[in-house]
Design a protein around this nucleic acid. Sequence first.
RNA 1: GUGGGCAUAGUUCAGUGGUAGAGCGCCAGAUUGUGGCUCUGGAUGUCGUGGGUUCGAACCCCACUGCUCACCCCA
Length: 432
Amino acid sequence: MQQIKVPKGMKDVLPGESGRWRAVESAMRRAALLAGYREIRTPVLEYTELFARSSGETSDVVRKEMYTFLDKGGRSVTLKPESTAGTVRAFLESGLYAQALPLKLYYVNAPHFRYEAPQSGRLREHHQFGMECFGAAQPSVDAELIRIVMELLAGFGLKNLQTRINSIGCPKCRPAYQQRFREYLAGKQDKLCKACVERTQTNPMRVLDCKEEGCQRELADAPVMLDCLCDECREHFDLLRQYLSIAQVPYTVDPRIVRGLDYYTKTVFEVTTQMNTGVLTVCGGGRYDGLVEELGGPAVAGVGFGMGVERVLMLLDQLEEGECLLAPEEEAPEVFVASLHKGLGPQAFSLMEAFRKAGLRADMDHQARSLKAQFKYADKLNARYIAILGDEEAERGAVKLRDMATKEEWEAALAAAPGELKKRIRLSGKEE
RNA sequence: GUGGGCAUAGUUCAGUGGUAGAGCGCCAGAUUGUGGCUCUGGAUGUCGUGGGUUCGAACCCCACUGCUCACCCCA
């Protein structure tokens, strides 16, 4: 039989890894909660038009990376490539904008899809933690978000992260800049890469973050948006910097960050790290003051970010022993019930149930294996104690308990064993 | 979309034309009521698929498929 494999660009999270996922997730939830953000869950699937309208028809995501198909009703639907659009849609559709603003939302472990060639750190399905704030025009929120991101990542033990910020202006000041920039590029068309020649027409600012060396050379003395901000954007950016310094967030200003989605205004930021293969973006975000209106709602400011969970885990993998500050949840059985022979199965089962009722993680033999094999298995599971049921003990209504680490063994009455073991575990937990 | 690399046991891989292998893992025994260490034994393979060359192909050639890495872009 031909084996069916996981679809291209998808990945299973196996039991050996899932503990780390949960640890990362719960740290994210804590961080969000601490800052007053509340969870929102939006569907994986949205109508294609939502992304076309929000991200921009010329963005790479919309043009070539969306997981789009027709459903049985002939509607064009898309697996979400990012979460801001869906969050805004929900915000509008459910009338949340009519409630007290600002409204702070987060999502965690949300699946995202981009149809592209998978490679290291880039899967077709990936998961994001993200935070979005609606109705707050002040840069204190921008700063708060950046601060939360840095705090969170530092809390995992990650180092060598760079935070870069920029302002890409607003509809008031950007057109004039774009005109000026287009004129600058006009004389250099023959020296730019093919993609950039096209971008000059469609979305000139994307030329700024082209990775081609030739293009970057030509851009050395190009005008940057930062120098052309209107008063409002200028003030916003200056204030943002002030807030960041109050929050003691280290960052650099990089006038070349423009980001791939059209909806951004004013603040954009990225958190990256240097890998041996190149720069890896862990988190990216920015302000989108026009998006809610663009999607048919009132003029409500927005700002947010998305963080790649797989990328965070990838960075954690590279930490040395002891540097990673994540504490994965304990999942090894606290007690494993072994029985001498098959006939004791029912007693073993009810003892295991009693352990579980007492709140202990308990398991038992389900294969009628030799006692030796049961010990081996319990050891593989990293069980802390083993409870041995034998005929001699059964006659006395007792069970033998053994500490797997110290090899200490003692006998306990069947009925009392769960309580006794629980007490023992709790006591030793306090000593640690 | 473009270009590299790889594909052999559960897994990591060795095997460059002549009987399909090793480490780890798994199972069992040594130890008939006791794990980790040791020793002994065992199970598991359409050698990615299809074709070609050859007396003979895991090996050489061609095609395909899959995986992987890089570019572009991004989380």
